[in-house]
């Protein structure tokens, strides 16, 4: 398995399903960065991850653009960050980011590419709009855990 996997989805439901598979496979301490333009489906993917982690549907996974961090309880805690309104890595300190990202939960970070300093992670996912419904998701593994996860994820996708 190389460190990169390309996936295509034909609508929001498929993007969410891909997120769900990631949520099912996620292990404690996983950090995933989500990049891509407005309206490309980052929060939609995050909703799938939450679902895969068993977060109760009674606690909707909404966009953290204003709140900056939303926390959900599933099989593992999900820390859902959104850096849309931030610009430097120092800004993250106040959110307790390091504590969370080094903990045993799953950390998802939308708009991490807004920071000038890259954040350490296992997986980076770049979402791109193909047309109104279709999206391309480029998964890039950044460490051993990320490569293993990607192999499982791609394997699971290929057997569907």
């Amino acid at each position: 398995m190389s460190g990169v996997w390309l996936a295509a989805t034909a609508g929001a439901a498929e993007t969410r399903a891909l997120g769900r598979r990631l949520g099912v496979l996620a292990r404690p301490g996983l950090v995933v960065l989500l990049a891509g333009d407005l309206g490309v489906g980052k929060t939609c993917f995050a909703q799938g991850v939450a679902d895969g982690l068993g977060v109760s549907p009674g606690s909707p996974v909404t966009s953290p653009s204003y709140t900056l961090l939303n926390i959900h309880q599933g099989r593992l805690p999900l820390y859902h960050f959104d850096l849309y309104r931030l610009s430097t890595v120092e800004d993250l300190e106040d959110l307790g980011y390091d504590e969370v990202a080094e903990g045993a939960g799953v950390t998802l970070v939308e708009w991490a590419d807004r920071l000038s300093t890259p954040l350490p992670c296992s997986l980076r996912i770049v979402l791109r709009r193909v047309d109104a419904d279709r999206r391309e998701l480029r998964f890039e593994a950044a460490d051993e855990a990320g490569r293993n996860l990607l192999a499982e994820l791609a394997g699971a996708a290929n057997t569907l």
């Binding site: 407005l38 309206g39 929060t43 939609c44 909703q47 909707p60 909404t62 966009s63 653009s65 204003y66």
Partner: peptide, 17 residues
């Protein structure tokens, strides 16, 4: 409640678009 974006957030993001 909203299941994704808040109303004010939708306004601000559309303004950006």
């Amino acid at each position: 409640q909203t299941l994704d974006d808040a109303a004010g957030e939708a306004y601000d993001k559309v303004a950006k678009l």
